[in-house]
Structure formats: structure tokens, C-alpha cells
Design a protein around this nucleic acid. Structure first.
Lengths: 245, 245
DNA sequence: CGTGATTGAACAACAGTGATGTTCGAAACT
DNA sequence: AGTTTCGAACATCACTGTTGTTCAATCACG
């Protein structure tokens, strides 16, 4: 586990912690801790005060992108591979934001497709491809996440029709459907689902036990769920094709 | 001068050249030349054949972004600084593609502005800013240049009104006005100019002696021209404020 | 179909970059 | 005023990316 994540979690659990505490916890020098705190403060994870830092992470919010990106990479890669296998050459695809979908983007780099990613991370991963047609939606990128949101994004989606939408999410359950932490993100995901003929959700096991604030769509609007969890009976019962990666 | 640019120009001037020729010309090993040719072929600069490469650069087209980006940096920085000085805090700015405008983007990173860049390079340069409101236009990024073009870009521009447009160009003269190499780019530039109250052109001296294929706008639609050239009387006579950086 | 030239994969050497620790003067809190 | 904390500057180290070398495979041409 990276030191930044270790610090983030320690500060979150304790509410606030001193620089010396974090130095002895991580084994790094105090100077390094200060540099880390500066980075994390810039990401909005915590707030510095003289001698230490206090957490800014609310319950029900998400740790920032940079800290999630190398979480569970093995599972994400497996899920992403299964999603990529469901997509046929020549299709047009709208690709949601988030770390799992970013892995999907990497696997699509050399395919022959039309792709509209909903985050700048995925745009960057794909912008060097010479085989696919890359479409960038308009919008305001949320800091860190770089997920595109707002009226420009919605307008871009509404003017197009895709074969497939690949949606990541923060929570998924048969009862509450697809949920997201961010309200604007939820609106974008909804627009992406509406503009696609087929909807694939890419969901790692941890998401199946969680429900986030904003409702995106009912399970019935999904065509397939790709997951690494074995226990997805609830979803299968709701009439969705469950693909286990 | 970088070896890649040296190779590009040598091959362009000779039409085609052998690997051994390029190795002795640059002083690098043949293996390195082969690796360079692979890179340049991927950029569409040239075409490889067994034993050498032949140029694909047409007269009237532009060398790719990666090769222009560290050309004349000193002049570009000066021009960019003068442009940035013309922009007041709180303004909304649409920022054209190209290497000069990318320098402007870098200088705007910590300002309090609303900025819509027309190339992904500038988007990336600005996406880590916490002070400015970044708007991404939709569109299809042109390979290498990463300039956004197409109907999505035009729609994004048409739905907004900016205080200032900062336009780079490929050619500028009192007689032929502002010109660009790429037709789609020209349409985007035109839309940017239309959607802004004030138009600033950022033009290094080499552009003032050139005219490119696509007409963008007459000199009279510009409010100011920022350049490093001394001899801009023609433009001043046409009624434009000329700022010498 | 053979022969010589060309290619690219694999490895080694090297330089440039980024991360970490240490020191020390300046700033901040008590 | 005294103590603590902070961050700039420099040294060190690991790592990454670039270059060169070697060699087996491939290609073009006679």
C-alpha cells in the first residue's frame, strides 16, 4: 500500500494526526510526511494545520482518483478484459469515468471502434491511438477525477446514439439499482445509458455491498453486469445477464 | 536541434534517405535511427521501406506538433507572456490550439479565469489547476495535434459567449487575413472568433510571411495582434492594435 | 533457392529524473 | 524569549528512459 493512502486512512480514522505520529507510523522522515500532506491537501483529502493534518473525507464520499487507481488492479484488469470481450469491432461505445473503465479504455486502445470516454484520464489513454475514432464530450472536468460533467456533457451525449455504454458505478444492488456518489456524475451516467442501445455495467465486488447517494438507474435498464464477485444471485434474479470475470 | 527533427528535415529535403546515411549524418547508431524512423512513421511524417525512409510531408502542410513544440520557445514564451498580460482576472477565454497557445495556457494555470482550450494538450496543461474553471469543448481530436474539431466542437462554441478569444494561426497578412492549414481547424477558429467579444491573435514572426490554405477571418475581425516581429506596419495600417512582445 | 543485407528483440551501459533524507535559517505558536 | 514547526536547498539513491551492441530471424535479389 502506498504511503499516501496509508496516511489518508490513518488521518481519516483518527480525525486528525500529528506529523511525528505519521512519520513513526510510516517509517518515513518528517520532511517526507510534510511533502505528502501538501500533496493530499492539494487533492482536497485533508487540511493541514501547524503540527499535523485533519481529514476532510466525509462519510459517503469517495477517496480521490489518484488513491483509488492502484487499488485492486488485478480484479479491475480481469473485469476490464471481460468487458472488452463483449464489444465487437466497429461498434460505437460510450465509456464511463472511474478506475475500472480506465482499464477498459487501455484495452480498447488498438481496437477498431468509435469511443467517447467520459473522463479525461481515459481520453488521454486513448488519444495516441491511430486505429479508433475518439470522440471527446464537452464538459467541466471535476478536479482529480477528471470526469466530465455539466450541461455541455449532457448536450454532447444527447446529440449522439451509441451501440454500447460501459458504465462504472459506486454502488449496485437489485433493490436500489445503480448509484453514484456525485450528483452531476449521476446525471451524466443517466444520459449515457439513455443514448446507448446496450448497457454494460463494470462492477467489482466491493460495489455490490454498497449504496451511494445518487440514484442513476434501475437494474432493469442494464443489459449485462460484469463483476468479479460470485454472489450476484440478486442481480441475476432481476433479469440481468451476469458475467463473472 | 533534436535528432528527430534533423531526420525529418533531411528526409524531407532529399525525398528519401537510407538508414546508413542518417546514421552518419546524425552521429547516432543505425539501431537508434531505426527506432527514430519508427516513431516518425507513427506520426505520419514519413514512410519506411527496407533500408531507409521516404518523406510524407507535403508542401503546404505542417510538421507534426511534437516536432514544432520546442521550436523557437523563447519567442513563444515572450509572446505568450504578452498575451497573458492582456487578460484580466475573471474573464472567460477561449484558447486556440497550437504550440504558442499552449504556452499561453501554461501561464494561465494559476489565474482566476474561465478557460476553454481547443486542444487536448492545453486541456492537460490546465487540468490540474484549482484556481480556474476549465471547460472542455467536445470534438474529435486530430492525431498528434490533438486539436478538437468537428460538429461537437462547433456546437460547444456556439452555445457559449466568451470575453476573449486567443487565436493562433498558420499565416497572417493584411491582404489575406488569418489562414490555417487545416480546413476543419479553420472552421473551429472561425467559431471561436464569432463567440468572443474580443479577439487576440498570437503570431510569431515566421507566420507573417506565410499564407496557408484555409481562410479563417479578415484582419478587421481582430482586436489585437501580439507578435515578436518588428515589421508589422501592414497590420497596423489595417487598423489592428499591434503589441510587440 | 542461396546469399548477403536489413531488421528488431534482448541485454548492457549510461544519463537524466524523481523521490527521500538531512541541514539550517525563517516563521509561528505559547 | 524560547521552543517547535516549517520549508527551501542540497546530497543521495533508485528508477526510468535512451542509446549502443549483439545476434537470430527475416527479407530482397540474383
Amino acid at each position: 500500500m502506498s504511503r499516501l493512502k496509508q496516511i489518508t486512512e490513518a488521518v481519516r480514522d483518527a480525525g486528525s494526526l500529528g506529523v511525528a505520529d505519521l512519520a513513526s507510523l510510516t517509517g518515513a522522515s518528517e520532511m517526507t510526511i510534510r511533502r505528502d500532506l501538501e500533496i493530499l491537501a492539494a487533492q482536497g483529502v485533508l487540511e493541514r494545520y501547524r503540527g499535523g493534518a485533519r481529514s476532510l473525507l466525509l462519510r459517503g464520499s469517495e477517496p480521490p482518483f489518484a488513491l483509488r487507481s492502484d487499488d485492486n488492479t488485478a480484479a479491475k484488469r480481469r473485469i476490464a478484459a471481460a468487458v472488452a470481450a463483449l464489444i465487437a469491432d466497429g461498434e460505437s461505445v460510450v465509456l464511463d469515468s472511474g478506475t475500472t473503465c480506465l482499464e477498459v479504455a487501455r484495452l480498447l486502445h488498438d481496437r477498431r471502434l468509435t469511443v467517447m470516454p467520459l473522463s479525461l484520464h481515459a481520453v488521454n489513454a486513448l488519444s495516441s491511438s491511430s486505429t479508433l475514432t475518439l470522440l471527446v464530450p464537452g464538459g467541466r472536468p471535476r478536479p482529480g477525477e477528471l470526469a466530465l460533467t455539466g450541461p455541455l456533457t449532457l448536450a454532447s451525449l444527447q446529440s449522439l446514439r451509441f451501440d454500447t455504454a460501459v458504465i462504472g458505478c459506486c454502488g449496485l444492488s437489485a433493490e436500489h439499482g445503480l448509484t453514484a456518489f456525485d450528483l452531476e456524475d449521476a446525471a451524466v451516467k443517466r444520459a449515457a445509458i439513455t443514448s446507448a442501445r446496450r448497457v454494460i455495467a463494470a462492477v467489482d465486488a466491493s460495489k455490490l455491498t454498497r449504496t451511494a447517494l445518487a440514484h442513476v438507474a434501475a437494474v432493469s435498464s442494464l443489459d449485462a453486469v460484469v463483476t468479479d464477485a460470485e454472489s450476484a444471485e440478486g442481480l441475476a434474479a432481476a433479469g440481468v445477464a451476469v458475467v463473472t470475470a
